[in-house]
Structures are given as C-alpha cells and as structure tokens.
Simulated assay, not measured.
Amino acid sequence: MSKSAALSSFIESAPPGELNDVTKAIKSILGDDSVHSELTPAFEKYNETQFTTVKLPGGSGEVLVSEHNTLGDGRYYDSISQTSFEFDHSKQTASAVQSYVPESGHADLIKSLTQSLTTHTQEHYPKCSIGVFPIEDDSQLAILTVANKYSPSNFWNGRWRSSYVYNPSSGSITGTIKVDVHYYEDGNVRLLTNKDVSASVGANATGGDVVRQIAVAEKKYQEDLNKAFASLNEGAFKALRRQLPITRQKIEWEKISGYRVGQDIGGGRSR
C-alpha cells in the first residue's frame, strides 16, 4: 500500500467529529504539514460519505454535503434554502453562497417530503440535518438524514446516518441506516452498524406516506439496537466480570458503596 493510500484510509475511517484530530495526528507523526494537500481527495470522500454538515454564512441551520447534492468543482446545493455554496473539504467550511433552485419535475413532492421529514426528525432526534435531492436524471429522489452528537469532554462522539432512494413511479423505497459511535476514555471502543431497508408505498404516494414508512423502519432499528445492548450487558459483558470474590460469596452490587474493599471483599482483617 502506498503512503497516500495508507493516509487516505486513516482519514476515511475517522470517527464522527474527530477528523481534525486524526489529521493533526498524521501531521505530527510525519512531521510534515505539506501532506495536507495530498489528503484533499480523502477529505472529499469522507465528507460526502459521512454527510458532513456545515452552517452557511448568514444561515441559521446546518446543511449537509453528499454525492447527491454536488454541483461539481467543490460546490453543493441545499434544496431547503434553495442556495448553492462552495465547500472547503479540509477545513469543513462553506463560502460563496448563491441562490440556486434545482430543476425537477418532482418539486411539489420534494417540498412535501422535506416538510414530513422535518417533522419526523424534530420528534426523534435532538439535532438533525436533512436533504431531499433529485437523482438519476430526476427519475428518483435521495432522502438523507444525519444526526450528530459530540461529547469530547466525556470521551465519546456519535453519528446516525440514513440514506434512502425513493422511486415515485414504482413506489419503492430502498436505503441504509448507519450508526457510528466512538468511546475512548481509558480505551478505544467503536460501534459501527449497518441496516438495509426496503419498503413500498405504491405509486403516486405523498411525502407523508413515504416518511411514515421510513419512521417505521428507523423505530424498529432503534428497538433492535436497544435489545442488542441489553443482551450484551446480560450476556457477554457480564461474563467478563468475576462472579465471586475471594471470599467465595456473591457481591450485593446495589450495596457496593458500603463495602470496605480490603476487608469485606478481600477477606482481610481491619487493623
């Protein structure tokens, strides 16, 4: 593997909210700030794949960057604010905002989907950015959602991404839900999950009909994740913990704060 390929793989696998940290680490290890320009293609791939969000100058909310809303030459557009902007992939900043109205024969459906998706995400995610974009020569619509929650002071960051392709003619919905959580206090634990979604609403469905199917799929996946975590806690994680201390007596964990560690648990005598 070449140096460029190796460095690109580090960038593309950076955890949510930690791209700058990974970049600084690469520069520090190599002792070369000029490597930044060499990583530009990797930055672009990372931002488009991760649905990186950015606040536009003068804007109130954040818009997302993806392969579905690119205009080429580093410019992207947002269907909600009907603007286009230039995006710096290495700095993750936006500039040169202009008015832009995408041409689509599904303008009313895009508006309906946007309204319904906004309501859905506001009810279920603390902070979320969305996008609805015509793709495949306006024959299909890409429906994107990204919700980020960063808590570096507590050593964890997380991201929820969902991407769906809706075909108005057939009424089919196909997509993928991805969850990426990184916890790094006194260790390094990362959760990466993918869930394929397939549903149908029939031809000529409304935006509300489509989003209801999406909501059902996302709720089901969240419930499955909760069950999986509960199973790990009662199964694999519990098996890692010693069941009996040296005294061969089970510990009453709800009273753990009252134990005198050396004497009660270790079996020693007080001095």
Rank of each mutant, 00 (worst) to 15 (best):
L19Y: 10
A215F: 03
E223H: 02
E44F: 00
E223F: 10
T93L: 10
A230V: 09
S2G: 09
L240D: 13
V65C: 04
D21W: 08
T83Q: 12
W253Q: 02
V165K: 07
N20V: 05
I135A: 11
D264G: 06
V22G: 00
H124D: 14
D78N: 06
S198I: 11
R269K: 15
P126K: 10
Y46S: 06
V261G: 12
E254F: 05
S2N: 05
V201H: 08
T145H: 01
E103S: 15
T176H: 01
L113S: 08
S139D: 15
E12K: 00
L113C: 03
G171F: 14
V210N: 04
A215E: 13
G208Q: 15
S172D: 05
A25W: 07
I251H: 08
A217K: 12
Q213A: 04
G59M: 06
Y150L: 10
P126R: 12
D196G: 06
S99A: 13
G208F: 12
A25H: 06
T118P: 01
P245V: 04
E62V: 00
Y183S: 08
G262P: 03
S9W: 02
S163D: 13
G268D: 15
T49E: 09
G131M: 04
A107M: 11
K111Y: 13
A107N: 15
S200Y: 14
V63A: 03
D224Q: 04
N154R: 00
Y164L: 15
S37T: 01
S34Q: 13
V189S: 05
S95T: 07
Y46H: 07
E12M: 00
Q140N: 05
P168S: 12
R241F: 11
H120S: 04
Q140E: 13
V197D: 14
G61T: 00
F133D: 13
E218R: 01
T145G: 00
H68Q: 02
S198F: 13
I29R: 06
S231E: 15
V97K: 05
T118G: 04
T114P: 07
T49V: 12
S66K: 01
V181C: 14
V101E: 15
G105S: 15
I110K: 02
R242D: 15
D73W: 03
D108G: 06
R212W: 10
D264W: 06
H68M: 05
S270E: 10
K178F: 10
I26C: 00
E252I: 13
A142F: 12
Q122H: 07
T145A: 07
R241T: 14
A199Q: 00
N47V: 05
Y76I: 09
S28C: 00
K227L: 01
T93K: 02
P57C: 04
H120A: 01
V189N: 09
E223Q: 08
V132I: 12
